[in-house]
Amino acid sequence: MNGVDHKFARLKTSKRKGIITYLTAGDPDLQATEAIVLEMARRGADMVELGVPFSDPVADGPVIQDASKRALVRDVTLEDVLKLAGRLRSRVRIPLLLMSYYNPIFSYGLSNFVDSASCSGVDGVIIPDLPLEESEAFSWDLKKAGIHFISFLAPTSSDQRIKETVERATGFIYCISVAGVTGARDVIPAQAHKLLEKVNSMTEVPLALGFGISSPEQVQSIGKHGSAVIIGSAIMKLVEQGGDGETIARRVGAFLKKFN
């Protein structure tokens, strides 16, 4: 059974909201990323999303843009992140997700990528600029290798798109809370609740809410229709404050403790 499915089944039994933590890999360096992920797993993160840095992250706000830029100064590549995932696989039990914009994967070669991701023990792949229309064949190839292709839905998605998306979705569906880019926001907008409710009524696939999530109060407020939240920019802000891997890991660990 894929780790993501196993995790959501357990979350359901324990009636708990899952916490998915995002990290731009290689910021400040790959060793630090490894240390932070280990600490996240210890502090109760349910899944970790490793972000591959990209030169043109159009779906991201300033915090993750800057993190990407810092990682790219060190020339961190998709291949580095796949290797990192491989190392982490033997050290943590939680599911590992890989987030990348499409071009690094396209450049790596799609079938090469499926092989490497599978070898590294990646459970799911998230590609913010590969919508339904462009992902049919690739998502199928990933699925055959036992890897979930994580679909997105947004408050702007039409009923027809929601229907087509849930038909294909596996693992979980990444629901975007707000029409905009990533970055911490104070409250979960009403449109996010509407989206979760609508999508939940159409599928059994678990829903994770992302974009703008940063506090335990927000997690409590997502209600019965969402199974998990994704926390990205709030964590990268803690990384941005600097220090070595251990220092950052402690800082992130203390932050995650509030969510338990």
Partner: peptide, 11 residues
Amino acid sequence: GRFVPETLMSA
């Protein structure tokens, strides 16, 4: 093609 985030697709 159309390689954009889902949020833009409706537009």
